[in-house]
Write a protein that binds this DNA or RNA. Structure first.
Lengths: 143, 143
DNA sequence: TACAAGTTGGTTGTGCACAACTAAATTGTG
DNA sequence: CACAATTTAGTTGTGCACAACCAACTTGTA
């Protein structure tokens, strides 16, 4: 147990985040997905046809991360990438039938991870609120 | 704004964690460090001579992550890795003078990031407690 | 209509994370 | 002692994150 370490917000967040994705990992592996791939699909399940830019905005990830990730999902047959006719700079990402079908299989996952976190609903809600507030503040501080 | 996304603990943690390390990044860059490298040094500043295994236990990182990271810190002249005389399986990690000297330069960092998080001291404390609890629960769930 | 400035997606390179595996040393047990 | 099981680091391979840079396209303005 290292005191300086455990007094830091950043380390607490870093540890908790890795622990949470570690709970997701074996569940997502059954769907053939990694956690960031699952995040991209979640955006597409709500907004099919999003551009790479839209995905980047939603997840705060840049094209250097998204481009190869999207290519992997495309070669897995879960989506297609097509240049927008209206604006040739844009690449629109469309789910395939397989990609859409995964939504149902993924439905129970968040609940299972929330349960694994071992918090009361009220406590969980407060945590979410606090994290959203912290993230906004940190982003505005980082510029 | 994607609803399904923002209702998930894991995504909140993932976003907050990346936002926090993003605040650290430019500050650590002045010291020539990445965030995980800084974490390793924090452990060594409190427990110089820790083994790779000790570092792994403290940070919950495995040797596949730590070995190359430690080599980079060694070639940066911040530490030395030596086989333990008592147990030839162990590699003990000792700070150099330069490595120890960085502690003082890094001293103000946590405070600055905590301020950037924009929480009241009481709120910050509650967050830390909740995150520690969540991390323990998630780890025991992951096995 | 030119064309500078901005937007969008991609590439390259570095450094984590983590799984799966290997090699070497130590320890427990007959 | 012998030797199987365990512990400890390290290697290899895959997939994020992110910085820095580039090419192609669009848009605003003279």
């Amino acid at each position: 147990m290292n005191d300086a370490l455990h007094r830091q917000v950043c380390f607490s967040l870093y540890s908790a985040s890795r622990a949470a994705t570690a709970v997701y990992r074996p569940l997502l592996e059954e769907l053939g997905l990694t956690y960031p791939q699952y995040l991209v699909l979640m955006v597409l399940w709500e907004q099919d046809g999003s551009s790479v830019r839209d995905l980047g905005r939603a997840l705060e990830l840049d094209s250097g991360t998204l481009s190869p990730l999207l290519k992997r999902l495309e070669s897995a047959g879960l989506l297609r990438r097509t240049r927008s006719a209206a604006d040739e700079r844009r690449v629109e990402v469309h789910l395939t039938e397989d990609g859409r079908a995964l939504q149902e299989k993924a439905l129970p996952l968040p609940q299972r991870v929330a349960e694994a976190a071992g918090l009361e609903p009220q406590e969980l809600h407060t945590l979410q609120e606090t994290l959203a507030k912290v993230t906004r503040a940190l982003r505005s501080a980082a510029g």
